[in-house]
Nucleic acid binder design. Structure first.
Length: 103
DNA sequence: ATGGTGACTTGGC
DNA sequence: TGCCAAGCCACCA
C-alpha cells in the first residue's frame, strides 16, 4: 500500500488518537498496518523525545495497564496526563472496556 | 553468529 | 480479571 517507514505510520496513528481514550500497543500496530509489531510500537515510544507532541500517554498494554513503572517519571507523567483528560486511573490500571478507542 | 531482553499479545485455565 | 507459556520483533553485548 504505502512505502513510508513503519515509524512514520506509527506516528500518524498516534496523532489520530483523540483525547479521553486509550489504545493498546497491538492496536496501534494493527492500525499502522503492522501486525505482530506491538513490541516495535513500544520500542518506538521509548525512543520518543521528551518534548514530543505525540499523545504517547494514550497507549497502554492489552491487560489494561500502564507498561511503565508507576514510580518512574514517565509513568507518573502518563497517569497524570490521562487523569487530566478525564480518565479514571486506578493505580496503573485503566478500564479498557470504558476507554478503549474504537475507530 | 548467538543468546538475552523488553513501554507486547494471545490462548488456555 | 488473573497467572502462565509460547510467539514475535528489533536491538545489544
Amino acid at each position: 500500500m504505502s512505502d513510508i517507514d513503519p515509524e512514520q505510520r506509527i506516528y500518524a496513528v498516534l496523532a489520530a488518537i483523540p483525547s479521553g481514550v486509550v489504545v493498546t500497543y497491538g492496536q496501534v500496530a494493527e492500525l499502522a498496518g503492522l501486525p505482530n509489531a506491538a513490541r516495535l510500537v513500544g520500542r518506538t515510544l521509548r525512543h520518543l523525545p521528551k518534548g514530543s507532541s505525540l499523545p504517547w500517554h494514550r497507549v497502554i498494554n492489552a491487560a489494561g495497564k500502564i507498561s511503565l513503572p508507576p514510580d518512574s517519571d514517565s509513568g507518573k507523567q502518563q497517569i497524570a496526563r490521562l487523569q487530566q483528560e478525564g480518565l479514571v486511573v486506578d493505580g496503573c490500571r485503566i478500564s479498557l472496556a470504558k476507554y478503549r478507542w474504537r475507530p
